[in-house]
Structures are given as structure tokens and as C-alpha cells.
């Protein structure tokens, strides 16, 4: 499982805490999201009791990215065996709106605001 690090953004997975850290500005096109989607899918291959999505450093995420995250949340919700925690930052406007949508996709999702 390879971390994705570029100048503009990074997606890192900490296996010990099963946390995915999203950081920076992600304004990518569909194909650029493929490795990220892969990373998220790889995490789901192992049965983790808890997965944490840390978005507190994610300044911008475009609609394609939201779609990826939405699908991830939806997949986790359908599995019904994983606790999903989303750690957001209220200072980023897009998160306030979209994290609530994730909650709708997965009502058991736990939201933690910074």
C-alpha cells in the first residue's frame, strides 16, 4: 500500500491507527484519483474494526474527489462491520456541507470536528 505524496496534496495511510490522512488541495481529474481509490480499496481488503478518515488538512476537494469519498463511505456502510470515524475541520466550508452528506450515507458514522 503506497502513500501518495505530491507537492499539492498527499494521502497517507497509518496502518497502526488505521487512519487515512488527506492533506492539501485535491483538484484532480478522474484518472488521477485512481491511485487514491486503490489505496482506499486496499484498506478495505483487511477487516479492520475501525477506520478513521482524517480530513483536517484537506483544504479543497473537488466533486470527483467527493464522489470517491462518498462511494468509500457507502461501501463501508454496506459492510456493517466497520466503525467509520471522519475527522473534519469546520474551517473548510466544503467539509461542513459534505461530511453531513456522508453521515446520511452512513448514519452510524462518527463525526469529530476540530
Amino acid at each position: 500500500m503506497e502513500n501518495i505524496i505530491t507537492k499539492a496534496y498527499s494521502v497517507k495511510y497509518d496502518a497502526e491507527t488505521t487512519t487515512v490522512y488527506f492533506q492539501g488541495v485535491m483538484r484532480l481529474n478522474g484518472t488521477e484519483y485512481v491511485p487514491i481509490k486503490q489505496l482506499l480499496n486496499d484498506i478495505l481488503e483487511v477487516d479492520h474494526p475501525v477506520i478513521i478518515l482524517n480530513l483536517q488538512g484537506l483544504e479543497v476537494l473537488n466533486s470527483s474527489g467527493i464522489s470517491i469519498l462518498g462511494r468509500f463511505v457507502f461501501t463501508v456502510a454496506n459492510k456493517k462491520t466497520i466503525h467509520l470515524i471522519v475527522q473534519g475541520a469546520e474551517k473548510f466550508v466544503w467539509q461542513r456541507k459534505w461530511v453531513l452528506n456522508f453521515k446520511r450515507l452512513m448514519p452510524s458514522l462518527l463525526l469529530e470536528w476540530k
Binding site: 464522489s67 462518498g70 462511494r71 456541507k97 446520511r104
Partner: peptide, 19 residues
């Protein structure tokens, strides 16, 4: 006017009647 609570993504899940 915030439209967040007036609906949901179209095409993401099969049923959005409640949203």
C-alpha cells in the same frame, strides 16, 4: 439558502426517497 437538506446526490445510492 442552503439546499443540503433538500435532497441527496443523484445516482450514488438506489433510493433517496427519505432525503
Amino acid at each position: 439558502i442552503d439546499t443540503c437538506d433538500l435532497g441527496f446526490f443523484i445516482g450514488l445510492i438506489d433510493n433517496i426517497n427519505d432525503d
